[in-house]
Structures are given as C-alpha cells and as structure tokens.
C-alpha cells in the first residue's frame, strides 16, 4: 500500500491500447481523491476531445485538458492536449510548448515525467502503462532518482507490452502490477 497523503501528484504515461485501460482504470478514483492526476496519452490528434468528454461522463474526478499556466488542483485528472508537450513548473502550474518531438512523440511522456520530477521530487508517483514505443522509460528512471514512487503495468498483462517492458528494463521499478491492482495501491 502507498499512503497517498504523502504525495502531491500522480503522472501517467500511456499509449497504444490506452483508451480501453483508462476507461476501466480512471472511474476507480473517488471524487475526493487527494492528489491530481496528469496523463500523457498518445492520442490520435482528432480523438482527444471526444475521449475526454466521454471519460468525464463516467469518472468521479473531473477530466480536463491541461491549459497553459493553469494551477494544478486536486480532484482533477488532466490530459496533455494533442500536438503539444505538457510540462509542470516548480510552482505547480502547467506549461505547454511546441518544441520538437521527443521519442517521436509530442506530447512526450519523458518530457512530462522529467519536469514533474523536478517540480515534485519525492512527492511524485509515476505510472507507465500499455504502449508501443519506449517513451517514458527514461522519465520513470528519473522519477526514481529524485525519490518518487514508480509503478508499471505488468507487461504480461498489457495490451501492448513494449512500453511497460522498456520501463521495467530502465530501472528498478517499485511496483509491477496488473491495472486492477495498481488502483488498489492507493484507494
């Protein structure tokens, strides 16, 4: 178990196969969940808006697209807008940018994770789930280096194992679990 009250933020990186997982995973969080959740999902550029509306209708927490310079607040689950990198500043606000792709991705999970680990250091929980590339594998190692907690969806149970496997191989991960058991760590 993780005592969630010791943490300030959860970041999640998820890619191919992610919609189905998030549809099952995010509704498990109660509306009074004490920390915000920030997600980079490699959407198809035109799918993001629809997916956010759909998730908002079936989750207890609010589902939003992250806005530039917005204060990050508990009770909310934020998604990176398509075609922008999403970063967290040290004053816990978002910044967006249109810099070059990282790991062939924009938004990139590594970009979010590095900036989040700089901002939250040991008060951060990082999660990597299903996906088809290795984006996030460096970022999750960095979260660990900064004292945060790292969690990876068990590659054997992931729809696409490449991304969780790359994360597992990058560093010593604290928890490697099927999705259902991940939520159980803090709820």
């Amino acid at each position: 178990m993780i005592d969630i009250y010791n943490y300030k933020c959860i970041v999640i990186g998820i890619s191919a196969g992610g919609m189905e997982i998030l549809r099952r995973f995010l509704p498990l969080f109660p509306s009074d969940f004490p920390v915000p959740i920030v997600i980079v999902q490699h959407f198809h550029p035109n799918q993001g808006e629809f997916f956010i509306k759909y998730l908002d209708s079936c989750c207890n927490m609010n589902i939003l697209e992250a806005s530039d310079k917005e204060m990050i607040k508990k009770g909310n689950i934020y998604f990176a807008p398509p075609n922008y990198h999403l970063l967290i500043e040290e004053n816990y606000t978002f910044s967006l940018n249109v810099d070059a792709k990282v790991n062939f991705s924009r938004p990139s999970i590594d970009v979010l994770f590095y900036s989040a680990a700089d901002a939250y250091s040991s008060s951060l929980i990082g999660i990597i789930m299903t996906g088809a590339n290795d984006d996030g594998s460096r970022g999750i190692r960095y979260i660990k280096e900064r004292g945060g907690v790292t969690i990876v969806q068990d590659p054997d149970t992931a729809e696409v194992f490449t991304m969780p496997l790359a994360a597992v191989e990058s560093s010593k991960i604290d928890y490697i679990l099927p999705v259902e058991n991940i939520a159980g760590l803090f709820i």
Partner: peptide
Amino acid sequence: YSKATLKLRLRI
C-alpha cells in the same frame, strides 16, 4: 521564459 521549457532544452 518558462523555466520548465528552458530545462527541457538544456537537457537536450
């Protein structure tokens, strides 16, 4: 400038 963005560029 946004410090998070500058940090990203410095890392790269």
